[in-house]
Simulated assay, not measured.
Amino acid sequence: MIAIETLKEEVSKLPLKERAAFAEFVWGTLPAPDYEVSDEEVGRRLEEMRSGAEPGLTTQELFAEVQRQLK
Rank of each mutant, 00 (worst) to 15 (best):
M1T: 11
M1G: 13
I2Y: 13
A3P: 09
I4N: 15
E5F: 11
E5M: 13
E5D: 10
E5R: 12
T6Y: 04
L7F: 15
K8M: 13
K8N: 10
K8Y: 13
E10A: 13
E10S: 14
V11E: 00
V11D: 01
V11M: 11
S12R: 14
S12T: 15
S12I: 00
L14F: 14
L14I: 07
L16E: 14
K17H: 09
E18N: 09
R19M: 08
A21N: 07
A21L: 04
A23R: 07
A23E: 01
E24Q: 10
F25Y: 12
V26M: 13
V26R: 00
V26L: 15
V26S: 04
G28M: 05
G28Q: 04
T29A: 00
L30A: 10
L30F: 12
P31S: 08
P31R: 09
P33S: 01
P33I: 00
D34G: 07
D34V: 02
D34H: 09
Y35I: 08
Y35H: 06
E36V: 03
E36C: 07
V37K: 05
V37N: 02
V37R: 00
S38N: 04
S38I: 02
S38V: 01
D39W: 04
E40M: 04
E40T: 04
E41Y: 01
E41L: 02
V42W: 01
V42G: 04
R44G: 02
L46N: 10
E47Y: 04
E48T: 02
E48G: 09
E48V: 02
E48K: 09
M49Q: 10
S51A: 13
G52S: 06
A53Q: 15
A53I: 00
A53Y: 06
E54M: 14
E54Y: 10
P55I: 15
P55K: 15
P55A: 15
G56A: 14
L57W: 06
L57I: 02
L57S: 02
T58H: 02
E61V: 10
L62Q: 03
L62H: 03
L62K: 00
A64C: 10
E65D: 11
E65Q: 08
V66S: 08
V66N: 07
Q67H: 15
Q67I: 04
Q67A: 14
Q67C: 00
R68N: 11
Q69S: 09
Q69H: 10
L70K: 11
L70A: 11
L70W: 08
K71S: 15
K71I: 00
K71D: 14
